[in-house]
Design a binder for these strands. Sequence first.
DNA 1: TTGCGAACCAAGCAAGTGCTTGGTAGTTTC
DNA 2: GAAACTACCAAGCACTTGCTTGGTTCGCAA
Lengths: 222, 222
Amino acid sequence: MVRSEAGKKQVAVRGAGQDGVYEDRTLIDQLVADGELSDPASTRGRLLNCGARLFQQKGFARTTVRDIGAEVGILSGSIFHHFSSKEEILRCVMEEVIRFARARMAAAVAAEEDPRDQLRACIRCELEAVHGHSVPGFSILVLEWRSLSSESQASVLRLRDSYEQIWREVFTRLGRPLDDPALSRRLIQGAIAHTHNWFRPEGKTLSLEGLSGQILAVFAPE
Amino acid sequence: MVRSEAGKKQVAVRGAGQDGVYEDRTLIDQLVADGELSDPASTRGRLLNCGARLFQQKGFARTTVRDIGAEVGILSGSIFHHFSSKEEILRCVMEEVIRFARARMAAAVAAEEDPRDQLRACIRCELEAVHGHSVPGFSILVLEWRSLSSESQASVLRLRDSYEQIWREVFTRLGRPLDDPALSRRLIQGAIAHTHNWFRPEGKTLSLEGLSGQILAVFAPE
DNA sequence: TTGCGAACCAAGCAAGTGCTTGGTAGTTTC
DNA sequence: GAAACTACCAAGCACTTGCTTGGTTCGCAA
């Protein structure tokens, strides 16, 4: 709620900014320059970041436009100068989340050659996204899907498919564990998304790295 | 818990009742007689069944007490003669869903001897539950978990653990795919729950039986 | 200087929300 | 047969919700 001129410094590499801002600075800057993401320092960008965090924490229905405005430091009515409706905020959050996650994962896959290592990179990427590192708001894609109108769903779905395509290509190259790469992807997608409900990275017993290995062991045993 | 009246073949009366009532008559009757489920013909039972269906269709937040009352045929205020709050309806729905799903799966497991067949039975059971056959409202357990207060979550969690215990025992007997049965369960739980978002049983390409086989192939390859 | 539009405020509307209150039939209990 | 209880209705209260409206400030360009 306190207006913190925080927009400027955000040099944060690891350790998110006040609004839960993305971490990877160079990638962000590139995407902002390409017009794929809103500038996180702008009011619109801050509304999206705060919205993402609140939607993830409390859920879309339990988050009010007054909540979002208060965190950004403007009144609720002023939000509608930037977005035409509350639902549009959710849709834009989802779109930016997908664009960022897609760019991140594409880079991670391109850094590997062996298909199994590529799968490992995908798993790691999505796990980090689900657990709030690197891509805040990622789990909203699953949790709040039904909060979108069917028109918005169709729009977001097209974008999302370009993200899924990366996964499917990796499973195709791997040729496992099922004949149908799309089906493999859907099963692993559910398994990873569900870790949001039980896995706590701070728990000492199993690290996120260790969890990646276990999931890999199931979907691509050696 | 281990209601092993299993071999009784469960003469499922396919075709739900007016309120989308459970299918397996004999099992239901037994659980009602034991006081584990509300009589689906009573007002309370009908409120729970209607609530379950509406919560699943529209989500908890988007379902109003007026919606529920209208479906049952009473005014919204009268609901609070049976439940102290809207949230209590959700909690009771979840509890009854768990009790029924637990009894159904225990019976299915007890009917098999080979651990791999037992796993297949579990997968089949939970897939049917998730997709609205046999256990209406099952997916509420995942989708609306955050709509419960933390006290209610703790209460439901205890009950739910007795359901999860069945899964863990099966994975323990199977000794696959991971060393940790609880972890295996959580991964397969996510994979199965997520099918709710994409699998359509009426689609000709892949039946629910076929899907069961594919999931089994991943988590317990021959 | 003047004009203009972007960004925001202050106030509030209309529609809904969960839940309460006071009351009334019908049934059961003693 | 009076009392108590169950299950419900009719009405509405207190509050929250997304969003609108009219007006103000301020940077910037002509």
